[in-house]
Design a binder for these strands. Structure first.
Lengths: 339, 339
DNA sequence: CTGAAAGCGCTTACAG
DNA sequence: CTGAAAGCGCTTACAG
């Protein structure tokens, strides 16, 4: 039987109120008494039941984490465990725990969130990867990782994806490319829309035409795309010489597809990619890829969340986490022997 | 303000007891009343506070998950997110949640476990990857993933690692190798000890000598090893022609090290590896690697846990999840032109 | 078929 | 400096 506060009180010959206060270091209890009670509590291996505390405080030391799609799926992409590491680290420092939303089947982000909040288990919600409209009306603070559509009314931490898309296009153009394809547009995810915008800006600034037929959609996270469309694009004589790709997995698939068509990366097509995964690092050729620093995204999101819980933040806060570019071998100058 | 059971009771003109019973579908309440109350509760968006329920039931719908080392570190290896996916899926199906132990600094598995249980938040504990002795005396069911040292008194789910080690060695010997090195022994982890045992058995059965100097230690999960020792082993004229490696990351590091010495995989040295990661798949050469099916490990562990919580299991249960071998290009016949 | 009362393990005004 | 009482939001014997 686990010891309760009453057991400790009886043992110490005081009331439960006094034990409670002594343990929370309330100055109203004499130092001597505090020490004595703490000793007794330790000896009895007493640990206050957090459920009971939460019930009266209307606060738990738990933050709910909601993954896009069903929880499981997204963890298959290394971005998410990395975010989780960051979240866990920052939470652990302040003795908070993470509660994972587990939607077995196709439970939407919104449903998963609601269910977590309704349970009363969580004091806050961190939502990963902003699908377009997880409109939810909940009674606890919410932080989203990624840019939500109604960004100016929300707390979020994100990469500057417009800048990243711009930087990607510029990186390619600086090396002489002018025929760029965009791989991995998904209207469900603001991250791909933001990068596309930056990409378009860079093209415009360079006076290059915006070819909508070279914007290839794909399902984000799942990283499935329209191979027939890609094949068709590269069959054309005025095919692209470079690609901005939303994810390493997409880039790896693309490399294979191009290989089947007799096109080599980077000799015939340069590829600049996102997420700097291990798979991309050991791929042939090793991929030049943006690292959006998912760990830091997690750390920052949890930091913001804990401030919100403590009531230290009032206005909507947006945190931007810098990205870096890992330059490897998938980008080269255009092949001038080609058409 | 969230609606409470009292609000619903008032609205329905009945007592809270009746609302409680109606919502739990207690047959003592008339069907008509049950329907009426459920309607009202739904309309008021009432959701019972799980904290309060847990307090009286002495049960939560939360299972604590403890990672080896500090939580964060291990998530960097794809094995762990995959297990987590399985755990999450199986939990979600039964409307259970996962609470992650977050030890910021070097919190031991045992401490993390104790803290989770003491909090009262969890109804059970799943401990990932058995370090040698997480001896803990807790009041909730515990399932470990991996073989604990005191296996016969515990519930666990594991790979048959003795068989896996044996199979690895046999796979190499079947292709003509007789000088095998074992890379990645870590006395802290039973998994590596088990594989080593199987490996030894296979050598013995084949009448091959057991060379202890060819058992190279490394830190599990971190996958750091003793490169100087490896170099020394391969500098010798009677060097190994094949390696059983505990992890793809270790194998990738080894390939690089051997490359620096002018030795190629698989031409000069064959490598059979574990964990079938993406990095190994896109590595050159693609690694032949065992898949220990981490997702299923998670699903099985959670299934067992839920049975334990329901009190449907009494005696210690051990579940074995089968492994498979993904054969790729890192294993070949020994190079007969070499010494 | 329904309700009043006690209690889960804590915390915290209120009182002394 | 310490205690008795009420209450957090539920559930469940007990009673009718």
């Amino acid at each position: 039987m686990k010891a309760t506060i009453k057991d400790v009180a009886r043992e110490a010959g005081v009331s439960p109120s006094t034990v409670s206060r002594a343990l929370r270091n309330n100055p109203r209890i004499s130092q001597a008494m505090r020490d004595r009670i703490r000793d007794i509590a330790a000896r009895m291996d007493f640990h206050p039941n957090q459920m009971a505390r939460s019930l009266v405080n209307r606060k738990t030391r738990i933050v709910g984490i909601v993954f896009p799609g069903d929880a499981g799926q997204s963890l298959g992409h290394p971005f998410y465990p990395a975010v989780l590491q960051g979240l866990g680290f920052a939470a652990g420092e302040r003795r908070y725990h993470l509660l994972l939303a587990t939607g077995a089947e196709a439970v939407s982000t919104a449903e998963a969130s609601q269910s977590l909040v309704h349970s009363g288990y969580v004091s806050g919600l961190i939502i990963l990867a902003a699908e377009v409209s997880p409109h939810l009306d909940v009674s606890v603070p919410v932080v989203v990782i990624g840019r939500p559509e109604d960004a100016n009314q929300r707390h979020y931490v994100d990469t500057n994806n417009v800048l990243a898309g711009h930087t990607a296009a510029r990186h390619l153009m600086d090396r002489g490319h002018s025929r760029l394809m965009f791989l991995g547009f998904d209207p469900q995810y603001t991250v791909t829309m933001d990068r596309l915008r930056g990409y378009h800006q860079a093209l415009e600034e360079a006076g290059l035409p915006l070819r909508e037929d070279w914007v290839v959609p794909s399902r984000f996270i799942h990283n499935t795309t329209d191979n027939a469309l890609i094949r068709q694009i590269f069959l054309s004589p005025d095919r692209p010489t470079a690609v901005v790709s939303m994810d390493d997995a997409l880039s790896i698939g693309l490399t294979g597809l191009l290989g089947d068509m007799g096109l080599q990366v980077p000799r015939d097509v340069s590829v600049i990619s996102f997420n700097n995964t291990e798979a991309g690092r050991y791929h042939v050729p090793p991929l030049t890829s943006f690292d959006v620093n998912p760990y830091q995204l997690g750390v920052s999101a949890m930091g913001l969340m804990l401030d919100l819980i403590k009531g230290r933040v009032t206005k909507p806060v947006a945190i931007v986490v810098p990205f870096t570019l890992a330059e490897r071998d998938s980008v080269a100058a255009p092949n001038t022997n080609q058409p």
